[in-house]
Design a binder for these strands. Structure first.
Length: 361
DNA sequence: AATCCGGGGAC
DNA sequence: GTCCCAGGATT
């Protein structure tokens, strides 16, 4: 089974990783804080997407102290467009916690790390192995795919029992010499060679040890239960603006797109006619707001719902926008009057970024 | 154990 | 367009 004198998985993987690893910004450091930031960003997110965000983020928040002292809105602004915004809020909270409770030093043991918001099993293992060279597994989706293929594990990878089984195997494999390279090697292999759809088994350093490849069953692994299909949500968004202002709302502090800003909007489970929308707009935003010219349509898919958005300009009578500023205090309106010159400071969901750009001054 | 959180890329 | 991908928190 040996090839070129390599007779175990560890050696094959390490050898391959040293020769083939990508040069990535977070691979230039061992700073546990920077490793932490990168691992949070890399959750559910591809490397190519993360790179520019990571660079901008650590430029503005180069140390734990910088991030701990930052305003949350600045942190969200740096996360704008990256998605899963609770990651940013938890990272911010977690860094403050490290500063206050651990004298600014990222903990070196798993139990303590797991208490920090946003750090779970995977991220704790990644920080410990990559920053501190601890022999801790870091099981992400790539590793689950690689290991279930190598060892031909036909159990649902979403089950806790399967993850425990994989964790046990990785613990046995992980070499004391370089746990960091081994864990990163497993993930890098999953990202570059052992890919979900078209694995490049001919180029795989671990191919001689891969059970599923022997039986040509790679494409059946890993096993996971499929999710159900997602409902449509019908949404109308309003452009209420003059030369210098635009009316916006800030989303709730928790839940979907938490704390981000957006156009004033109404949602329904069923599609409505223009007349029916108009009625809801009067109830929601006041009698002086009238549906105007249609600006266009937007669509946005989340994990479990799909937004179908119709964007309209609004006509407003009886008062101008600066009057609405005063009306706001009566709690009659559910929006804020924003100076268009300040739009660049506010974080928006991806789906609204293009349209907001049109109104920036 | 199941569901909630975005966005990008393959096809 | 449709499908696939994937950690942590919450329920």
């Amino acid at each position: 089974m040996a090839t070129k004198g390599i007779n175990n998985i560890q050696q094959a993987l390490l050898h391959w990783f040293y020769a083939n690893k990508r040069e990535l910004p977070w691979r230039e450091t061992k700073d546990p804080y920077l490793i932490w930031v990168s691992e949070i960003m890399l959750q559910q997110t591809k490397v190519d997407t993360v790179i520019p965000y990571y660079k901008a983020f650590i430029k503005e928040f180069p140390t734990i102290n910088h991030l701990a002292e930052a305003k949350e809105e600045r942190v969200l602004k740096r996360w704008e467009g990256l998605g899963y915004y609770s990651r940013a809020k938890n990272l911010h909270r977690g860094v403050k916690e490290v500063k206050e409770s651990y004298m600014g030093e990222v903990p070196k043991d798993k139990e303590t790390l797991l208490k920090i918001p946003g750090i779970g099993d995977y991220t704790a293992g990644a920080i410990l192995s990559i920053a501190y060279q601890k022999e801790e597994p870091a099981i992400d989706g790539n590793v689950l795919r690689v290991i279930t293929r190598i060892f031909r594990i036909f159990e649902d990878i979403n089950k806790v029992s399967t993850k425990r089984e994989v964790e046990g195997l990785v613990k046995e494999l992980i070499p004391a010499e370089d746990p960091s390279a081994f864990n990163q090697g497993l993930m890098e292999l999953g990202a570059l060679i052992c890919t979900p759809k078209s694995p490049k088994c001919g180029e795989c350093p671990v191919q001689p040890f891969c059970e599923s490849e022997k039986y040509n069953e790679q494409l059946f692994l890993p096993i996971k239960k499929k999710k159900k299909k997602i409902p449509n949500v019908y949404r109308i968004s309003l452009i209420i603006a003059d030369d210098k202002h635009i009316l916006l709302t800030q989303r709730p502090k928790e839940g979907l797109l938490a704390d981000l800003w957006e156009l004033p909007s109404i949602e329904q489970e069923q599609p409505l006619s223009e007349e029916e929308w108009q009625l809801l707009i009067h109830q929601q935003f006041g009698e002086e707001i009238e549906l105007g010219e249609k600006w266009g349509s937007l669509k946005h898919i989340f994990s479990h719902k799909k937004w179908l958005i119709e964007v309209y300009r609004a006509n407003f009578s009886k008062m101008d926008i600066s009057m609405m500023e005063k009306e706001k205090n009566k709690n009659k309106h559910q929006f804020n009057v924003i100076k268009r010159e300040n739009l660049k400071e506010l974080p928006f969901p991806r789906v609204y970024q293009e349209i907001i750009k049109e109104f920036r001054i």
